[in-house]
Design a protein around this nucleic acid. Structure first.
Length: 421
DNA sequence: TCTGGGGTCCTAGGACCC
DNA sequence: TCTGGGGTCCTAGGACCC
């Protein structure tokens, strides 16, 4: 029987902030999304105050003030770095590891000796990560990834388990009968609605659902989930990171854009950033989409549009991306709207230099790609935005808010924490 | 006033081919 | 007046994830 563990960091972003600011321990803390929009990570104390995942900051302003909730902007440079350290520690417990997201890893524990006490083993993983990195975790184990995920949910929500839960066949049904079907990995709001309409309310109900019905209602994805709940593995560990198929740079604006010129600057900026991402992953794109849209939440007149182009030859040159993006923007722009968000999507990614050539276009000369690499190096060494294309402009009225940012403790010399003794 | 960003997978339907 | 069938590829859109 295979055995998988899912190790999940507890309220990861908040835990990272606490690592370098221990005063936050025991206090309600939230970390905001980009643009300081929504709460995306909440400490246990913040959850206890009723602060929901994804709630916009302005809706909890009074609560934040009265309860002295500590508010932080997100600091992805820090979280990415801590995440890599946690992964490094976990890989010592099993070489077969899939780093599923910034705060979760699946480990294949099938090769553990049969006499291993799994609860002890899970506890040892938690303790080691906590001691070496300082990040609290929970561990769920089961014979499929879906079961390990559910076990992790139980470990997180049942304090008596001590942060570790092994989902055995004997105890599964009793546990499943008391968990809402929406907690299952891959069952989102739309599926919950469909399932409840046919009387499937708990995880146990879903586990016992006829496979054909599952497929009809939720496509092949739903069928697989039911199989995984019944300990039949449909999804293996992905031990090697697969090359990305798409990349995107999209942002909401700090304040609405009204003028075409500002939008040109913003789209140029996103194109430059998108090119940078491609060059970092040594990829090129064959397809480019630009979209713009008004605010979807307020009463502003609505407008949303996008347009795409298939590139004659693959590229990751920021200037080429800008050159293609500008006419697309022109084709979708309409005067008179208050634009709240825009972005660039790059699809059909290929390895650098391996894309198909074109009879009538020559690929960008090496001299050109050298310019890009010099820019990337300067921006890496001296901070993002040190060198940039003039088209992006320097005023940038449209740029992001980030009012509560913590220092880049681990990725910038200037922000190194100082110790006093 | 203020509501995230960046991914993956699946399906339906149109275009196109022989 | 009669006007195929089967296959592939591409794209848009929905659902879901963290």
């Amino acid at each position: 029987m295979p055995l998988y563990a899912l190790v999940d960091c507890n309220n990861f972003y908040v835990s990272c902030e606490r690592l370098f600011d221990p005063k936050l321990e025991g206090k309600p803390v939230i970390v905001l999304s980009n643009n300081d929009g929504c709460a995306v990570s909440r400490s246990a104390e913040a959850k206890a105050l009723g602060i929901k995942m994804g709630i916009p900051l302005f809706k909890i302003k009074d609560l934040v003030k009265s309860e002295k909730v500590v508010v932080r902007s997100s600091n992805y440079a820090l979280y990415g770095d801590i995440s890599a350290r946690v992964e490094d520690v976990l890989s010592q417990f099993s070489p077969r590891i899939e780093n599923y997201s910034i705060d979760e890893s699946f480990l294949d524990l099938s090769d553990l000796p049969p006499e291993t006490d799994l609860h002890d083993f899970g506890t040892q993983m938690r303790t080691t990560v906590l001691q070496w990195i300082g990040i609290p975790t929970c561990v769920g184990m089961g014979s499929t990834k879906t079961l390990a995920k559910l076990a992790n949910h139980i470990a997180k929500t049942t304090p008596s388990m001590g942060g570790v839960c092994h989902m055995t066949a004997e105890r599964a049904d009793d546990l499943f009968a008391n968990i809402d079907v929406g907690e299952v990995w891959g069952i989102g709001n739309a599926s919950v609605k469909q399932l409840k309409s046919i009387g499937v309310h708990t995880v146990l109900d879903l586990k016992r659902l006829d496979l054909k019905i599952a497929r009809k209602l939720l496509t092949v994805t739903g069928e697989r989930i039911v199989q995984e709940l019944n300990a039949i593995a449909c999804s293996a560990l992905e031990l090697e990171a697969k090359p990305k198929q798409a990349t995107a740079v999209t942002r909401s604006f700090g304040k609405a854009i009204l003028h075409y010129h500002d939008m040109q600057e913003a789209i140029s900026f996103y194109a430059a950033r998108a090119g940078e991402k491609l060059r970092k992953s040594k990829q090129e794109c064959c397809h480019l989409t630009v979209f713009i849209r008004t605010n979807v939440f307020n009463d502003d007149p609505k407008y949303s549009a996008s347009n795409s182009i298939r590139l004659p030859i693959p590229t990751n040159d920021s200037r080429v991306l800008m050159d293609y993006a500008m006419p697309i923007l022109k084709s979708i722009w309409r005067d008179g709207y208050r634009y709240a968000k825009a972005g660039i999507l790059l699809n059909d990614l290929v390895d650098e230099g391996c894309g198909q050539g074109h009879l009538f276009h020559t690929p960008s000369a090496p001299k050109n790609s050298a310019v890009m690499h010099v820019m990337d190096r300067l921006n890496k060494q001296m901070g993002r935005g040190t060198v940039f294309q003039a088209a992006i402009g320097i005023k940038r009225d449209w740029s992001l808010r980030s009012n509560f940012h913590s220092p880049r403790y681990t990725s910038s010399w200037a922000d190194l924490p100082k110790a006093k003794c």
